[in-house]
């Protein structure tokens, strides 16, 4: 009885899988290929973002593993249309088709992020200040808690508020500078620009060090 039940169940599951396979794997295969081998005129993403999409802390290149797929597509669009500029990444984003952006974003979104945070050699006092900013903000300067938009653990909220936990400190700091200087202008309604412009250099250093010391958690699209 039990054996037969398992058999039918397995058979059903198997045919179900076959049915689904072409759609799932087509996207993932194309995305995976771009990520690991690159495409026509496109370097493999992994050469900068790491084989597992874990990023490169020393160079300040972001982790992509586990980021929200829609968020990544928005960023690739922004890098391609110039509302976000970066000499390394913009040309790559521009050369990807709309479909390729979706495929590769889907691929990275499904990777498990590294469990060890990038961290860094930071003074405890700086980390402490970073934690306060992250969790409570600095209202004298008009800065709300980062976690009130980026999620209680910085793990991100939907497609609008990216995961910032477990990103390299240098990458995070570069983004804050990019908003301050106006080279990144793609955020919804200027929400992050407004926060970034209120952050002093010391506070930016402290709060990015704090988020780099946290483990990344995959941001579920409907968190």
């Amino acid at each position: 009885m039990r054996g037969r039940y398992r058999f039918t169940c397995g058979l059903f599951g198997f045919s179900f899988l076959i049915l689904l396979m072409p759609t799932i794997s087509a996207a993932n295969e194309a995305g995976k290929k771009l990520a690991l081998q690159g495409g026509e005129g496109v370097q493999p993403c992994s050469s900068c973002h790491g084989a597992q999409g874990g990023g490169n802390a020393a160079a300040g290149w972001p982790r992509l593993a586990g980021l929200n797929a829609d968020y990544m597509v928005q960023q690739l669009n922004a890098l391609a249309n110039g509302t976000r500029s970066n000499p390394l990444m913009a040309p790559i984003a521009s050369s990807l088709s709309e479909q390729q952006r979706k495929d590769v974003a889907e691929y990275f979104a499904n990777l498990t992020p590294p469990t060890t945070p990038p961290g860094g050699d930071v003074d405890q006092k700086i980390l402490k200040r970073g934690k306060v900013l992250a969790q409570r903000g600095d209202w004298q300067q008009g800065i709300p808690a980062c976690t009130s938009c980026h999620g209680l653990k910085g793990q991100g909220v939907g497609a609008a508020f990216p995961s910032i936990a477990g990103q390299p400190a240098m990458y995070l700091q570069n983004q804050i500078k990019a908003w301050q200087s106006g080279s990144r202008q793609n955020d919804p309604n200027g929400l992050m620009a407004s926060v970034a412009k209120r952050l002093s250099d010391e506070d930016s250093q402290a709060v990015t060090a704090w988020f780099a010391s946290l483990p990344a958690e995959p941001s579920k699209s409907d968190q």
Partner: peptide
């Protein structure tokens, strides 16, 4: 409001 754009203590509005 919007959170992060207005600033109550500085009495700034968006």
């Amino acid at each position: 409001m919007p959170l992060g754009k207005a600033s109550p203590v500085e009495k700034e509005a968006a």
